[in-house]
Protein backbone atom coordinates (compact mmCIF):
# COMPACT_ATOMS: atom_id res chain seq x y z
CA UNK A 1 0.00 0.00 0.00
CA UNK A 2 1.65 3.23 -1.03
CA UNK A 3 1.77 6.38 0.98
CA UNK A 4 -0.85 8.50 -0.77
CA UNK A 5 -3.25 5.57 -0.95
CA UNK A 6 -2.92 5.17 2.78
CA UNK A 7 -3.50 8.89 3.31
CA UNK A 8 -6.55 8.73 1.09
CA UNK A 9 -7.97 5.86 3.17
CA UNK A 10 -7.16 7.82 6.31
CA UNK A 11 -9.37 10.64 5.06
CA UNK A 12 -12.26 8.25 4.39
CA UNK A 13 -11.79 6.45 7.67
CA UNK A 14 -11.70 9.64 9.71
CA UNK A 15 -14.89 10.89 8.06
CA UNK A 16 -16.88 7.80 8.95
CA UNK A 17 -15.12 7.68 12.31
CA UNK A 18 -16.30 11.20 13.19
CA UNK A 19 -19.89 10.19 12.49
CA UNK A 20 -19.63 7.01 14.59
CA UNK A 21 -17.99 9.08 17.30
CA UNK A 22 -20.76 11.68 17.43
CA UNK A 23 -23.33 8.92 17.78
CA UNK A 24 -21.23 7.01 20.30
CA UNK A 25 -20.96 9.92 22.73
CA UNK A 26 -24.69 9.92 23.45
CA UNK A 27 -24.68 6.16 23.97
CA UNK A 28 -21.75 6.42 26.30
CA UNK A 29 -23.13 9.31 28.37
CA UNK A 30 -26.52 7.70 28.85
CA UNK A 31 -24.91 4.39 29.78
CA UNK A 32 -22.63 6.18 32.20
CA UNK A 33 -25.48 7.93 33.96
CA UNK A 34 -28.25 5.33 33.82
CA UNK A 35 -26.41 2.04 33.05
CA UNK A 36 -28.89 1.73 30.21
CA UNK A 37 -28.22 0.78 26.60
CA UNK A 38 -30.52 3.28 24.94
CA UNK A 39 -31.37 1.26 21.85
CA UNK A 40 -33.42 4.17 20.54
CA UNK A 41 -30.30 6.30 20.28
CA UNK A 42 -29.41 5.11 16.77
CA UNK A 43 -32.92 5.93 15.61
CA UNK A 44 -32.43 9.55 16.62
CA UNK A 45 -30.05 9.73 13.69
CA UNK A 46 -32.95 8.78 11.45
CA UNK A 47 -35.34 11.22 13.12
CA UNK A 48 -32.91 14.06 12.70
CA UNK A 49 -32.35 13.11 9.07
CA UNK A 50 -36.09 13.23 8.37
CA UNK A 51 -36.49 16.57 10.13
CA UNK A 52 -33.62 17.99 8.13
CA UNK A 53 -35.05 16.53 4.95
CA UNK A 54 -38.51 17.98 5.53
CA UNK A 55 -37.08 21.32 6.59
CA UNK A 56 -35.26 21.71 3.32
CA UNK A 57 -37.44 19.93 0.81
CA UNK A 58 -40.96 20.62 2.07
CA UNK A 59 -40.62 23.88 4.01
CA UNK A 60 -37.79 25.27 1.89
CA UNK A 61 -35.95 26.48 4.96
CA UNK A 62 -32.39 27.63 4.56
CA UNK A 63 -29.70 25.10 5.40
CA UNK A 64 -28.53 26.40 8.77
CA UNK A 65 -32.11 26.75 9.97
CA UNK A 66 -33.13 23.17 9.19
CA UNK A 67 -29.84 21.93 10.55
CA UNK A 68 -30.35 23.77 13.85
CA UNK A 69 -34.04 22.82 13.90
CA UNK A 70 -33.21 19.15 13.48
CA UNK A 71 -30.71 19.30 16.32
CA UNK A 72 -33.09 21.14 18.66
CA UNK A 73 -36.09 18.93 17.92
CA UNK A 74 -34.08 15.72 18.22
CA UNK A 75 -32.67 16.88 21.54
CA UNK A 76 -36.21 17.56 22.69
CA UNK A 77 -37.28 14.11 21.52
CA UNK A 78 -34.39 12.63 23.51
CA UNK A 79 -35.67 14.30 26.66
CA UNK A 80 -39.25 13.20 25.92
CA UNK A 81 -38.17 9.59 25.44
CA UNK A 82 -36.44 9.60 28.79
CA UNK A 83 -39.31 11.28 30.61
CA UNK A 84 -41.98 9.17 29.00
CA UNK A 85 -40.41 5.76 28.78
CA UNK A 86 -37.37 5.45 31.02
CA UNK A 87 -38.09 7.64 34.02
CA UNK A 88 -41.12 5.64 35.24
CA UNK A 89 -39.03 2.47 35.49
CA UNK A 90 -35.77 3.77 36.92
CA UNK A 91 -36.14 1.66 40.03
CA UNK A 92 -37.17 -1.61 38.39
CA UNK A 93 -34.74 -4.28 37.19
CA UNK A 94 -32.45 -3.30 34.36
CA UNK A 95 -33.89 -5.81 31.94
CA UNK A 96 -37.20 -3.89 32.01
CA UNK A 97 -35.51 -0.70 30.95
CA UNK A 98 -33.70 -2.52 28.16
CA UNK A 99 -36.94 -4.00 26.87
CA UNK A 100 -38.56 -0.58 26.97
CA UNK A 101 -35.62 0.84 25.05
CA UNK A 102 -36.06 -1.79 22.33
CA UNK A 103 -39.76 -0.90 22.28
CA UNK A 104 -39.02 2.80 21.83
CA UNK A 105 -36.55 2.03 19.07
CA UNK A 106 -39.08 -0.11 17.22
CA UNK A 107 -41.79 2.48 17.76
CA UNK A 108 -39.70 5.26 16.21
CA UNK A 109 -38.76 3.10 13.23
CA UNK A 110 -42.27 1.93 12.54
CA UNK A 111 -43.93 5.28 13.12
CA UNK A 112 -41.54 6.60 10.49
CA UNK A 113 -42.45 3.68 8.24
CA UNK A 114 -46.17 4.24 8.66
CA UNK A 115 -46.21 8.02 8.35
CA UNK A 116 -43.48 8.58 5.80
CA UNK A 117 -43.19 5.23 4.05
CA UNK A 118 -40.36 2.83 3.53
CA UNK A 119 -39.08 4.18 0.23
CA UNK A 120 -35.68 5.85 0.75
CA UNK A 121 -35.81 9.59 0.20
CA UNK A 122 -32.85 11.19 -1.41
CA UNK A 123 -31.33 13.78 0.85
CA UNK A 124 -30.53 17.05 -0.91
CA UNK A 125 -26.80 17.64 -0.55
CA UNK A 126 -26.08 21.35 -0.31
CA UNK A 127 -23.61 22.94 -2.71
CA UNK A 128 -21.03 23.93 -0.15
CA UNK A 129 -20.16 20.34 0.73
CA UNK A 130 -19.70 19.07 -2.80
CA UNK A 131 -16.36 18.97 -4.52
CA UNK A 132 -12.99 18.09 -3.15
CA UNK A 133 -9.65 19.59 -2.28
CA UNK A 134 -6.79 17.84 -4.04
CA UNK A 135 -3.48 17.72 -2.23
CA UNK A 136 -0.90 15.81 -4.24
CA UNK A 137 -2.41 12.40 -4.95
CA UNK A 138 -4.88 12.68 -2.13
CA UNK A 139 -8.34 14.05 -2.72
CA UNK A 140 -10.09 15.35 0.34
CA UNK A 141 -13.83 15.73 -0.18
CA UNK A 142 -15.11 19.08 1.05
CA UNK A 143 -17.71 17.14 3.04
CA UNK A 144 -14.94 15.37 4.95
CA UNK A 145 -13.46 18.71 5.93
CA UNK A 146 -16.86 19.90 7.11
CA UNK A 147 -17.51 16.69 9.01
CA UNK A 148 -14.16 16.86 10.68
CA UNK A 149 -14.43 20.54 11.62
CA UNK A 150 -17.99 20.24 12.88
CA UNK A 151 -17.11 17.15 14.92
CA UNK A 152 -14.09 18.79 16.51
CA UNK A 153 -16.10 21.92 17.33
CA UNK A 154 -18.99 19.93 18.80
CA UNK A 155 -16.68 17.66 20.75
CA UNK A 156 -14.77 20.63 22.19
CA UNK A 157 -18.04 22.32 23.13
CA UNK A 158 -19.34 19.13 24.69
CA UNK A 159 -16.19 18.59 26.72
CA UNK A 160 -16.27 22.20 27.88
CA UNK A 161 -19.88 21.89 28.95
CA UNK A 162 -19.22 18.66 30.81
CA UNK A 163 -16.05 19.89 32.48
CA UNK A 164 -16.94 23.51 33.21
CA UNK A 165 -20.66 23.87 33.79
CA UNK A 166 -22.33 22.92 37.04
CA UNK A 167 -24.75 20.56 35.36
CA UNK A 168 -21.98 18.96 33.34
CA UNK A 169 -19.97 18.31 36.48
CA UNK A 170 -23.05 16.88 38.13
CA UNK A 171 -23.47 14.58 35.15
CA UNK A 172 -19.98 13.23 35.48
CA UNK A 173 -20.44 12.80 39.19
CA UNK A 174 -23.68 10.94 38.55
CA UNK A 175 -21.96 8.48 36.27
CA UNK A 176 -19.51 7.71 39.06
CA UNK A 177 -21.77 7.41 42.02
CA UNK A 178 -25.27 8.54 42.77
CA UNK A 179 -24.97 9.51 46.44
CA UNK A 180 -22.49 12.32 45.93
CA UNK A 181 -24.86 14.06 43.56
CA UNK A 182 -27.72 13.83 45.97
CA UNK A 183 -25.55 15.48 48.58
CA UNK A 184 -24.58 18.25 46.19
CA UNK A 185 -28.25 19.13 45.98
CA UNK A 186 -28.49 18.78 42.21
CA UNK A 187 -31.80 17.62 40.79
CA UNK A 188 -31.04 14.20 39.39
CA UNK A 189 -33.81 14.27 36.82
CA UNK A 190 -32.59 17.55 35.42
CA UNK A 191 -29.12 16.10 35.02
CA UNK A 192 -30.50 13.03 33.26
CA UNK A 193 -32.62 15.16 30.92
CA UNK A 194 -29.57 17.23 30.17
CA UNK A 195 -27.61 14.08 29.36
CA UNK A 196 -30.27 12.91 26.95
CA UNK A 197 -30.52 16.35 25.34
CA UNK A 198 -26.78 16.63 24.83
CA UNK A 199 -26.38 13.09 23.54
CA UNK A 200 -29.37 13.40 21.21
CA UNK A 201 -28.17 16.73 19.85
CA UNK A 202 -24.83 15.19 18.94
CA UNK A 203 -26.59 12.21 17.34
CA UNK A 204 -28.75 14.67 15.37
CA UNK A 205 -25.73 16.56 14.08
CA UNK A 206 -24.21 13.22 13.14
CA UNK A 207 -27.45 12.24 11.43
CA UNK A 208 -27.53 15.27 9.15
CA UNK A 209 -23.92 14.77 8.13
CA UNK A 210 -24.51 11.05 7.69
CA UNK A 211 -27.17 11.91 5.12
CA UNK A 212 -24.82 14.20 3.25
CA UNK A 213 -22.43 11.29 2.95
CA UNK A 214 -24.99 8.55 2.30
CA UNK A 215 -27.94 10.53 0.94
CA UNK A 216 -30.77 8.05 1.47
CA UNK A 217 -33.22 8.66 4.29
CA UNK A 218 -35.27 5.66 5.36
CA UNK A 219 -36.90 4.43 8.59
CA UNK A 220 -34.29 1.82 9.47
CA UNK A 221 -31.20 3.81 8.57
CA UNK A 222 -30.24 4.28 12.23
CA UNK A 223 -30.06 0.62 13.19
CA UNK A 224 -26.64 -0.34 11.89
CA UNK A 225 -24.91 2.97 12.72
CA UNK A 226 -26.46 2.70 16.18
CA UNK A 227 -25.05 -0.76 16.73
CA UNK A 228 -21.65 0.30 15.53
CA UNK A 229 -21.69 3.41 17.66
CA UNK A 230 -22.33 1.31 20.71
CA UNK A 231 -19.32 -0.80 19.83
CA UNK A 232 -17.33 2.42 19.48
CA UNK A 233 -18.49 3.48 22.94
CA UNK A 234 -17.37 0.17 24.45
CA UNK A 235 -14.13 0.40 22.52
CA UNK A 236 -13.35 3.74 24.10
CA UNK A 237 -14.43 2.65 27.56
CA UNK A 238 -18.11 3.13 28.06
CA UNK A 239 -18.98 6.19 30.11
CA UNK A 240 -16.13 8.26 28.74
CA UNK A 241 -16.86 11.02 26.21
CA UNK A 242 -13.41 11.37 24.73
CA UNK A 243 -13.18 7.58 24.71
CA UNK A 244 -16.38 7.34 22.67
CA UNK A 245 -15.07 9.80 20.11
CA UNK A 246 -11.80 7.93 19.97
CA UNK A 247 -13.61 4.59 19.67
CA UNK A 248 -15.62 5.97 16.75
CA UNK A 249 -12.44 7.02 14.95
CA UNK A 250 -10.81 3.64 15.50
CA UNK A 251 -13.87 1.79 14.26
CA UNK A 252 -14.15 4.02 11.17
CA UNK A 253 -10.48 3.58 10.36
CA UNK A 254 -10.59 -0.17 10.97
CA UNK A 255 -13.53 -0.62 8.61
CA UNK A 256 -11.97 1.45 5.86
CA UNK A 257 -8.49 -0.01 6.16
CA UNK A 258 -9.52 -3.65 6.34
CA UNK A 259 -11.40 -3.27 3.09
CA UNK A 260 -8.56 -1.26 1.54
CA UNK A 261 -5.99 -3.91 2.38
CA UNK A 262 -8.17 -6.89 1.47
CA UNK A 263 -10.69 -5.71 -1.15
CA UNK A 264 -12.24 -9.19 -1.32
CA UNK A 265 -13.34 -8.71 2.30
CA UNK A 266 -15.55 -5.76 1.41
CA UNK A 267 -18.61 -7.94 1.99
CA UNK A 268 -17.57 -8.33 5.60
CA UNK A 269 -17.31 -4.61 6.30
CA UNK A 270 -20.38 -4.53 8.53
CA UNK A 271 -19.01 -7.42 10.56
CA UNK A 272 -15.82 -5.59 11.55
CA UNK A 273 -17.49 -3.79 14.46
CA UNK A 274 -18.87 -7.05 15.79
CA UNK A 275 -15.53 -8.81 15.84
CA UNK A 276 -13.85 -5.76 17.29
CA UNK A 277 -16.41 -5.88 20.09
CA UNK A 278 -15.67 -9.55 20.77
CA UNK A 279 -11.95 -8.89 20.84
CA UNK A 280 -12.41 -5.96 23.23
CA UNK A 281 -14.60 -7.98 25.58
CA UNK A 282 -12.06 -10.79 25.61
CA UNK A 283 -8.94 -8.73 26.03
CA UNK A 284 -9.68 -5.38 27.54
CA UNK A 285 -13.27 -5.07 28.71
CA UNK A 286 -12.57 -1.68 30.26
CA UNK A 287 -12.03 -0.21 26.79
CA UNK A 288 -8.85 1.22 25.36
CA UNK A 289 -9.04 4.33 27.49
CA UNK A 290 -9.14 2.12 30.54
CA UNK A 291 -12.21 3.55 32.23
CA UNK A 292 -13.63 1.32 34.90
CA UNK A 293 -16.35 -0.87 33.46
CA UNK A 294 -19.49 -0.32 35.49
CA UNK A 295 -21.23 -3.47 36.62
Amino acid sequence: MDYSFALQQLVYGLTVGCLYGLLAIGYSMVYGVLRLINFAHGDLLMVSAYIGFFGIVIFHLPWPVSFAGAIALTALLGILIDRGAYKPIRKSPRINALITAIGVSFLLENVALVTIGGRPKSFPTPGFVSGAIVVGDVSIPTLSVWVFVVTVVLLTLCMAVVKKTRIGIAMRALSRDMETVMLMGVDKDRVISFTFALGSALAAAGGIMWCMKYPAVEPFMGVIPGLKAFVAAVLGGIGSISGAAMGGMILGLAEVFIVAVQPEWSGYRDAVAFFLMIVILLTRPTGIMGERLPD
Partner: peptide, 29 residues
Protein backbone atom coordinates in the same frame (compact mmCIF):
# COMPACT_ATOMS: atom_id res chain seq x y z
CA UNK B 1 -21.18 -16.54 25.75
CA UNK B 2 -17.44 -16.78 26.23
CA UNK B 3 -16.59 -13.14 25.67
CA UNK B 4 -19.90 -11.76 26.86
CA UNK B 5 -20.44 -13.49 30.20
CA UNK B 6 -16.86 -12.99 31.34
CA UNK B 7 -17.71 -9.38 32.07
CA UNK B 8 -20.74 -8.05 33.83
CA UNK B 9 -23.10 -5.69 32.06
CA UNK B 10 -25.61 -5.94 29.29
CA UNK B 11 -23.19 -6.85 26.55
CA UNK B 12 -25.19 -9.94 25.61
CA UNK B 13 -27.94 -7.68 24.25
CA UNK B 14 -25.66 -5.87 21.87
CA UNK B 15 -23.56 -8.88 20.88
CA UNK B 16 -26.58 -11.07 20.16
CA UNK B 17 -28.22 -8.22 18.25
CA UNK B 18 -25.01 -7.69 16.31
CA UNK B 19 -24.75 -11.40 15.60
CA UNK B 20 -28.07 -11.21 13.75
CA UNK B 21 -26.52 -8.70 11.36
CA UNK B 22 -23.24 -10.61 11.16
CA UNK B 23 -25.04 -13.84 10.35
CA UNK B 24 -26.51 -12.16 7.28
CA UNK B 25 -23.11 -10.90 6.25
CA UNK B 26 -21.54 -14.33 6.73
CA UNK B 27 -24.37 -16.20 5.02
CA UNK B 28 -24.27 -13.85 2.06
CA UNK B 29 -20.55 -14.29 1.69
Amino acid sequence: AMPVFRVRGDYLAIVSLGFGEVFQVLANN
